[in-house]
Lab assay of single mutants.
Amino acid sequence: QRITLKDYAMRFGQTKTAKDLGVYQSAINKAIHAGRKIFLTINADGSVYAEEVKDGEVKPFPS
C-alpha cells in the first residue's frame, strides 16, 4: 500500500511515523508543513519504506 507522509501521520500519529522511519518527530512535522512530496510504502510485514519525489527524481527518505 502506498500513502502520503501526511496521510500516514494523520492515521498513525507523528510519533509513530517518526519511529517507523527512524527520524525525530520534529522532522516529520517540518516535512509535512513544508509540503514535501514524500510517499510511504507499507509492506505486507508491516515495515515501512519512504521515498521523496523532488525535481523529478525519486530518493529514499530520510536520505
Results as ranks from 00 to 15, higher is better:
residue 40 L to C: 09
residue 23 V to N: 02
residue 60 P to C: 07
residue 23 V to K: 02
residue 40 L to R: 00
residue 18 A to D: 01
residue 14 Q to Y: 15
residue 43 N to M: 12
residue 39 F to A: 02
residue 30 K to G: 11
residue 12 F to A: 03
residue 29 N to L: 12
residue 37 K to H: 14
residue 1 Q to C: 14
residue 11 R to K: 14
residue 21 L to N: 01
residue 58 V to P: 06
residue 45 D to Y: 04
residue 37 K to D: 09
residue 39 F to W: 14
residue 12 F to W: 12
residue 62 P to W: 05
residue 7 D to E: 14
residue 17 T to K: 01
residue 12 F to K: 03
residue 3 I to R: 04
residue 15 T to V: 14
residue 12 F to V: 06
residue 44 A to G: 11
residue 31 A to E: 02
residue 16 K to P: 02
residue 43 N to S: 11
residue 26 S to D: 10
residue 27 A to L: 15
residue 27 A to E: 15
residue 10 M to V: 11
residue 18 A to R: 02
residue 21 L to A: 02
residue 62 P to L: 05
residue 59 K to H: 14
residue 59 K to Y: 15
residue 58 V to C: 08
residue 63 S to N: 14
residue 4 T to Q: 07
residue 33 H to C: 12
residue 30 K to A: 15
residue 26 S to K: 09
residue 55 D to C: 10
residue 48 V to Y: 04
residue 20 D to Y: 04
residue 29 N to W: 15
residue 7 D to I: 05
residue 52 E to V: 04
residue 22 G to T: 04
residue 41 T to W: 12
residue 28 I to Q: 00
residue 30 K to F: 09
residue 6 K to D: 07
residue 62 P to Y: 04
residue 41 T to S: 08
residue 1 Q to R: 08
residue 5 L to V: 02
residue 28 I to H: 00
residue 52 E to K: 01
residue 26 S to I: 10
residue 12 F to M: 06
residue 24 Y to M: 14
residue 53 V to F: 13
residue 59 K to M: 14
residue 58 V to L: 10
residue 38 I to F: 01
residue 27 A to P: 02
residue 34 A to W: 07
residue 54 K to Q: 12
residue 33 H to G: 10
residue 28 I to T: 01
residue 41 T to Y: 14
residue 10 M to C: 11
residue 40 L to M: 09
residue 33 H to Q: 14
residue 56 G to P: 02
residue 52 E to H: 03
residue 53 V to A: 07
residue 56 G to F: 07
residue 35 G to H: 10
residue 59 K to R: 13
residue 10 M to I: 13
residue 28 I to S: 00
residue 35 G to E: 10
residue 26 S to H: 11
residue 8 Y to F: 05
residue 46 G to K: 06
residue 55 D to S: 08
residue 42 I to W: 07
residue 15 T to S: 13
residue 46 G to L: 07
residue 4 T to F: 06
residue 57 E to W: 10
residue 29 N to P: 07
residue 45 D to R: 04
residue 49 Y to W: 14
residue 16 K to S: 04
residue 24 Y to F: 11
residue 44 A to I: 11
residue 3 I to T: 08
residue 54 K to H: 12
residue 51 E to V: 12
residue 13 G to A: 01
residue 14 Q to P: 13
residue 61 F to Y: 12
residue 57 E to N: 11
residue 6 K to E: 14
residue 61 F to V: 02
residue 17 T to G: 01
residue 24 Y to K: 15
residue 48 V to H: 03
residue 26 S to T: 11
residue 21 L to D: 00
residue 4 T to I: 04
residue 47 S to Y: 07
residue 5 L to H: 00
residue 45 D to P: 03
residue 62 P to Q: 05
residue 14 Q to L: 15
residue 11 R to F: 09
residue 49 Y to H: 10
residue 31 A to W: 13
residue 25 Q to A: 14
residue 41 T to C: 09
residue 3 I to Q: 06
residue 9 A to L: 13
residue 53 V to G: 04
residue 24 Y to E: 15
residue 41 T to I: 15
residue 45 D to I: 04
residue 39 F to D: 03
residue 50 A to M: 03
residue 37 K to W: 07
residue 20 D to L: 11
residue 41 T to H: 08
residue 36 R to L: 11
residue 52 E to C: 04
residue 10 M to F: 10
residue 22 G to Y: 04
residue 2 R to L: 10
residue 53 V to P: 02
residue 60 P to N: 06
residue 16 K to L: 03
residue 12 F to R: 03
residue 36 R to P: 01
residue 25 Q to L: 11
residue 1 Q to V: 15
residue 58 V to S: 10
residue 41 T to L: 09
residue 24 Y to I: 11
residue 27 A to N: 07
residue 42 I to G: 02
residue 26 S to E: 11
residue 31 A to Y: 09
residue 29 N to F: 12
residue 35 G to L: 07
residue 9 A to H: 05
residue 28 I to D: 03
residue 51 E to W: 06
residue 61 F to P: 03
residue 13 G to Y: 01
residue 53 V to H: 12
residue 34 A to M: 12
residue 45 D to K: 04
residue 39 F to G: 01
residue 41 T to E: 06
residue 42 I to Y: 07
residue 19 K to L: 12
residue 51 E to R: 06
residue 63 S to R: 13
residue 28 I to C: 01
residue 53 V to N: 08
residue 42 I to M: 09
residue 37 K to P: 11
residue 10 M to Q: 13
residue 60 P to G: 06
residue 15 T to G: 11
residue 50 A to P: 02
residue 52 E to W: 04
residue 1 Q to D: 12
residue 22 G to W: 04
residue 39 F to N: 03
residue 63 S to Y: 12
residue 2 R to N: 06
residue 8 Y to V: 00
residue 1 Q to S: 12
residue 28 I to V: 10
residue 9 A to R: 06
residue 60 P to T: 07
residue 36 R to Q: 07
residue 62 P to V: 05
residue 34 A to Q: 13
residue 59 K to V: 15
residue 6 K to Q: 13
